[in-house]
Simulated assay, not measured.
Amino acid sequence: MNKDEAAPETRLIHTRAERLGRVTVNPPLERASTVLFRDEAGLYGAKPTYGRMGLTVHRELEAAMCDLEGARHARLAGNGLQACALAIASLVSSGDHLLFTDSAYGPTARFCERRLKAMGVDAERFDPRIGDEISSLFRPNTRAVFLEAPGSLTFEITDTPAVVAAASQRGIRTILDNTWGAGLLHQPLALGVDISVQALTKYAVGHADAFGGAVMTRDNGLAARIAAASEDWGIALAPDDAYLALRGLRSLHTRLKAHEASGLEMAHWLAERPEVADVLHPALPASPDHVLWQRDFTGSNGLFGVILNPPPEGGMDRFFSALSLFTLGFSWGGFESLIIPCDQQLERMKGSWTQTRAGPLLRLHIGLEATSDLKRDLEGAFKALSGN
């Protein structure tokens, strides 16, 4: 396409660049709902015709996410939950059956069991370590399998290639929430997964100051279904959030290396603490999923779980009150180190290991502070927990 044949919005960008005699490192950030056209043909023939469909910064972010995930198509959403819901809803309809991992992000599980039920879809949990035995759960109306690796809060690694192989033999589509892997540490589409999803809010944005989600695929037909569902639901990502996600991607590799190094150091340190019963981190050799993590992942980050030994009465209140660097807060992926108690969020299948664990489950995000300071902070909290 030459300059004269370009779409109106592209011509406008070119014209501005020529008039100013320069171009910028960053794409233009257009805060606009209305796109102007010179004639009726442009008004009804060009894309995008409206700001909700995204403008320049959105196209740049979509292209970057395709590069990151090895995809051909990317669709943006307002947040990670919206992206998960979009991916799932593009594959199922009334009368269908969905399988989703028992370790899925809580709001995603809620969407499957509450909203999909209202839509006439039967959603069923499965053990994240089920592997190829998942075929025993398939029904004639099973349309999709939703995975998350590692699992939210509990960090199990599913044997994704085994699940994909079993599903593909029956023509069943697979989706994987790749937020922990962030595209750099894990490549679900390369393992045969049909759709990869990320909450850009986490490591992509990387600064705890914006929301975003993305749905990626290599399949043209699936891309059309995702786009149609997105348009029907009016799903959109604000231009400022798209800009911040694109900016965050530029430092993603460097930040993840720092999070990984500090996360591993803290995980090994915690594993030696007498207050700790177990550390849930797939990169640790003691993890039951370590071999799968080594096979399917290229690294780790700063997010993992810890199971404490049973604390004395009032111990957890004293523990959290004594913390100063670690703060209690949802989400993760930014500079700051975070910690949350997880027991109130755990809604798992009957007989799940989470119901027989030693003591409280905590999730930690190791930020970019000095690990010596983080250890000192936790040491003081552990002393408070014991009543010393």
Rank of each mutant, 00 (worst) to 15 (best):
Y44H: 10
A64Y: 05
P28D: 07
L29W: 00
G51H: 05
S33D: 06
N79A: 11
A46F: 06
L36Q: 02
Y50C: 01
L43M: 10
E60M: 10
E30V: 14
A71S: 07
L61A: 07
A87R: 00
A71L: 02
A77R: 10
G80V: 03
G54H: 05
R38K: 10
A41L: 12
L29G: 09
P28H: 02
T56W: 05
L81F: 04
V57A: 05
Y50E: 01
V35C: 00
L86Q: 00
G80A: 12
G51Y: 09
L36Y: 10
L61Q: 13
D67K: 14
K47P: 00
T34S: 02
G51M: 06
G51T: 08
D67M: 07
E69T: 07
A64Q: 14
G70L: 03
E30A: 11
R31G: 08
R38C: 00
L81T: 14
Q82S: 10
R72S: 15
M65P: 01
G80K: 03
A83D: 10
Y50R: 09
L36N: 02
A85H: 03
A64E: 14
V35K: 01
Q82L: 05
G78S: 15
T49W: 03
Y50I: 06
R75S: 14
N79Q: 09
A64D: 11
G80M: 06
R59K: 14
L86W: 00
L36F: 08
N79V: 01
Y44S: 08
A74D: 04
H73G: 05
D67Y: 02
E60W: 13
